[in-house]
Amino acid sequence: MRHRHHFHADHAGHSVTATVETGHTVLVEVLVDGKETGSVTGHGDGAIVVHVELPTDPPEQATVRVKPGPGDPSCLFETPDAEPRIMSPRAY
């Protein structure tokens, strides 16, 4: 059975949203300011890493690390200039 989980973080005036669809195959989609900037498919409970670029001047690299399970997934947002932080779950 597939389940969708949503996570959010704000960084440097930009909105970063991750959707994690769990099941036999795990699909992670990352949106920056409402535009899809990265997606990765994985299998099982291993960590999934999605690299994205924030539209700053100059563009800033960021990473969303997803732990799909066991249990509910979690997301960590990382940039080179800030401490990693847990992305807040959202109930859409």
Rank of each mutant, 00 (worst) to 15 (best):
residue 1 M to F: 06
residue 3 H to K: 14
residue 3 H to Q: 14
residue 4 R to D: 15
residue 4 R to W: 06
residue 5 H to Q: 09
residue 5 H to A: 07
residue 6 H to T: 13
residue 7 F to N: 05
residue 8 H to Q: 12
residue 8 H to E: 14
residue 8 H to T: 06
residue 9 A to H: 03
residue 9 A to G: 02
residue 9 A to E: 14
residue 9 A to S: 15
residue 10 D to H: 11
residue 10 D to Y: 03
residue 10 D to W: 03
residue 11 H to F: 07
residue 11 H to I: 05
residue 11 H to T: 05
residue 12 A to N: 07
residue 12 A to V: 02
residue 13 G to K: 00
residue 13 G to A: 01
residue 13 G to S: 02
residue 13 G to I: 02
residue 14 H to S: 08
residue 14 H to I: 01
residue 15 S to A: 12
residue 15 S to E: 15
residue 16 V to Q: 04
residue 16 V to D: 06
residue 17 T to Q: 14
residue 17 T to D: 15
residue 17 T to F: 08
residue 18 A to G: 01
residue 19 T to H: 07
residue 20 V to A: 10
residue 21 E to K: 11
residue 21 E to T: 15
residue 21 E to W: 01
residue 23 G to C: 07
residue 23 G to W: 04
residue 23 G to Y: 04
residue 23 G to V: 05
residue 24 H to T: 08
residue 24 H to D: 15
residue 24 H to P: 09
residue 24 H to W: 09
residue 24 H to R: 11
residue 24 H to A: 13
residue 25 T to H: 12
residue 25 T to G: 11
residue 26 V to R: 08
residue 27 L to K: 13
residue 27 L to M: 09
residue 27 L to W: 08
residue 28 V to T: 14
residue 28 V to L: 13
residue 29 E to K: 13
residue 29 E to R: 15
residue 29 E to V: 03
residue 30 V to I: 04
residue 31 L to T: 04
residue 31 L to Q: 15
residue 32 V to F: 01
residue 32 V to A: 04
residue 32 V to L: 05
residue 32 V to P: 04
residue 33 D to F: 00
residue 33 D to S: 02
residue 35 K to L: 10
residue 35 K to Y: 00
residue 35 K to D: 14
residue 35 K to H: 07
residue 36 E to I: 00
residue 38 G to Y: 00
residue 39 S to I: 01
residue 40 V to G: 01
residue 42 G to A: 00
residue 42 G to F: 00
residue 42 G to W: 02
residue 42 G to V: 00
residue 43 H to L: 10
residue 43 H to T: 13
residue 45 D to W: 12
residue 46 G to I: 06
residue 46 G to D: 15
residue 47 A to Q: 14
residue 47 A to M: 10
residue 48 I to A: 07
residue 48 I to P: 06
residue 48 I to T: 05
residue 49 V to Q: 13
residue 50 V to L: 09
residue 51 H to P: 03
residue 52 V to G: 13
residue 52 V to A: 07
residue 53 E to I: 08
residue 53 E to D: 14
residue 53 E to N: 09
residue 53 E to F: 01
residue 54 L to M: 08
residue 55 P to R: 03
residue 55 P to E: 11
residue 55 P to M: 08
residue 59 P to R: 03
residue 59 P to Q: 04
residue 60 E to N: 03
residue 60 E to C: 08
residue 60 E to G: 02
residue 63 T to I: 14
residue 63 T to E: 15
residue 64 V to R: 06
residue 64 V to W: 11
residue 64 V to Q: 07
residue 65 R to C: 03
residue 65 R to P: 00
residue 65 R to I: 12
residue 66 V to K: 08
residue 68 P to T: 01
residue 68 P to V: 02
residue 69 G to I: 04
residue 69 G to L: 07
residue 70 P to S: 10
residue 71 G to S: 08
residue 72 D to Q: 13
residue 72 D to P: 03
residue 74 S to M: 07
residue 75 C to S: 06
residue 75 C to N: 10
residue 76 L to K: 12
residue 76 L to R: 12
residue 78 E to Q: 14
residue 78 E to R: 09
residue 79 T to D: 10
residue 80 P to I: 02
residue 81 D to H: 11
residue 81 D to F: 08
residue 83 E to D: 15
residue 84 P to Y: 04
residue 84 P to D: 05
residue 85 R to Y: 02
residue 86 I to K: 12
residue 86 I to C: 04
residue 86 I to Y: 07
residue 88 S to H: 09
residue 88 S to L: 12
residue 90 R to Q: 15
residue 90 R to S: 11
residue 90 R to W: 07
